[in-house]
Design a protein around this nucleic acid. Structure first.
Lengths: 248, 248
DNA sequence: ACGCAATGAATGAACGGCCGTTCAGTCGCG
DNA sequence: CGCGACTGAACGGCCGTTCATTCATTGCGT
C-alpha cells in the first residue's frame, strides 16, 4: 500500500532470462531450472526445501520465510502452491511416508517368497542409505513429536505404521510356520523388531558417533538371529562369528 | 524506544480498588488457597503445569499463557521464577531426566549384585507406572524432536543416555562373563536393549491401543530371553510358555 | 499485644517483534 | 497482448517479556 513505486522492485541479480532462440517454436527444450515451472515440480522443490530446513534447524525455526529462502523462491509461493504452511508440512510428511512404504514394498517383493529373505530385506531397507538419511530422520522425529496432537499427522503416520507392521507380522508368522519355530510368538517378535528399528533410528539421529547404519543393521540382524537361530545365525548375530554357537 | 513516557501507561480499567469499608482492616479472610509460596514449590508447580500442557496439546501450543493458566497463576510468574520460557522448558526436561536416572539407579541398586536381576530391574523401571506415564512420554518425545537443535536439550539428554547405556552395558558384560555366554557380544545386546526400549516407549505413546506397558515388558523380556536363553526363559519370552523350550 | 513500615511475591496490561497470510503489482511466455 | 506464475511489502494476530502496581507477610518499635 501507500506508494510502492518508490521502493525498489524486483531486482533479479541472476539468470533473468537466457531464452535461446526461436519464439515461434512451441516447446523449447527446457534446460534452465528457474522460471515458471510446472506446479508439480514447484511442489517438489518446496517439499525438499522443507526437509532441508527442518533437518538443519528443527521444527521451531522452520518458517515460511526460511523454506522460501532455502528454495530460492519468494515467500508467497508457498501459499500459492500449498494453501497454508500447515498443508506444506502435511504434504512433506506424506511424501516421506509414501517413499518409505514404496521402498519397503519393493524390497520385500523383490526378495522373493522366502520369509527369511523378506525379513532381511526389511532390515536392509530400514537402514538403507536412501531411506535412512540423517536429513530425513530429523524430519521424521520432528513430526513424531507432534503426531499425537495433530490428527492429520496421526493419520499419515498410522497408515505407514500399519503397512509396516502388517508386513513384518506376516513375515514373522511365515517364518514361524515354515521355518519350524512353533514355540515362537510371531507377534512378539514382530512388534519387537519394529520397536527396535524405531529406537535405532533415534540413535542414528541423535548419537551419530556411537551408532552407524552398519551397526544398526548388525543389531537388527542379531535380534533376528536370536529369535530365529537356525536361519539368521550365519549373517552375524550377537554371537561372535569367531566362535561356534556354543551349546554348553 | 523513542519516548515511552507519552504512550499511555497502565490504565487499569477495572478493580482499581473496591475496598468496601475498612481500609484499616488488613486481612479479610481469603478463601483462595494460594498467595505466597516458597520459590521451590512454585517452580515445581510450574514444571508440573508445563508437563501437563505439553502432554495435553503438544509443544507447539504450549505458551507462557497456557502454562500459567494451567497452574492457575499469572503470566508474569514464569519469568519471575525462571528467567525465560526457554529456561522453564530446560528445567522441565532436566526434572524428567533426573527422575528417570534416580529411578534406574535405585532399581538396579536394590536388585542386588546379580546381573540377571539387574537387567530385569531395568526393564521393570522402564515400563513402570511412575516413569512411563503417557503424560511424561509425550513430553520426552516433544523434547526429542528438538534435541538435535538445542545444545542445552542435547546435553541433558546425552547425560541421561550415557548413564543408562553405561548401566546396561555393564550388566550385559557381567551377564556374558558370569552367566557363561562367551560368544555373545555384550555391546550389541546392550545397544539393542536401549534402542528397543526407546522404540517401545514410542509405541506406548502413539499407539496406546496396540501397545501396553505389560506387552512392552513382555517384548523386552523376550529380547533378553533370546539373548541369554539360560537365564530369562522362565519369565516369558517370545517362546510360548505352553510349550517346552524345544531343544530339537 | 498491636499496628506500621518494609519487603518482595504475584499480577496482568502493554509492548515490540515475529510470522503466516494476503494481494496488488511485475514479468515471462505463448 | 493477455494470462497466469511469481513476487514481496504490508497487515494482523499471537506470544514472550517487561514493569508499574497490588497485597500478603514479617519484623520492629512502641
Amino acid at each position: 500500500m501507500t506508494d510502492k513505486g518508490l521502493t525498489l522492485i524486483h531486482n533479479r541479480p541472476f539468470l533473468t532470462n537466457n531464452a535461446p532462440a526461436a519464439m515461434t517454436r512451441p516447446p523449447p527444450p527446457r534446460k534452465t531450472a528457474r522460471r515458471t515451472a510446472p506446479p508439480e515440480k514447484r511442489r517438489r522443490q518446496l517439499i525438499e526445501a522443507t526437509i532441508r530446513c527442518v533437518a538443519k534447524s528443527g521444527f521451531a525455526e522452520t518458517t515460511i520465510a526460511t523454506v522460501a529462502r532455502e528454495a530460492a523462491l519468494s515467500q508467497g509461493i508457498i501459499n500459492l502452491h500449498f494453501q497454508s504452511k500447515e498443508r506444506l508440512l502435511t504434504e512433506t510428511l506424506r511424501h516421506l511416508a509414501d517413499e518409505y512404504r514404496a521402498a519397503c514394498a519393493e524390497a520385500v517383493a523383490s526378495a522373493g517368497t522366502s520369509a527369511e529373505a523378506g525379513l532381511a530385506a526389511m532390515v536392509e531397507v530400514d537402514f538403507n542409505r536412501r531411506i535412512c538419511e540423517k536429513k530425513k530422520l530429523a524430519v521424521w522425529f520432528a513430526f513424531w513429536g507432534e503426531r499425537k496432537f495433530r490428527p492429520t499427522y496421526r493419520k499419515i503416520c498410522a497408515a505407514r505404521d500399519k503397512s509396516y507392521d502388517d508386513l513384518v507380522r506376516q513375515l514373522c508368522t511365515a517364518m514361524c510356520e515354515e521355518g519350524g519355530y512353533p514355540d515362537v510368538d510371531a507377534a512378539i517378535v514382530a512388534d519387537g523388531l519394529s520397536a527396535l528399528t524405531d529406537g535405532l533410528w533415534l540413535d542414528l539421529l541423535v548419537r551419530p558417533d556411537s551408532m552407524s547404519r552398519e551397526r544398526a543393521r548388525r543389531i537388527s540382524m542379531a535380534f533376528l538371529a536370536d529369535a530365529f537361530p537356525r536361519h539368521f545365525r550365519s549373517q552375524g548375530g550377537a554371537r561372535r562369528p569367531t566362535q561356534r554357537p556354543a551349546r554348553r
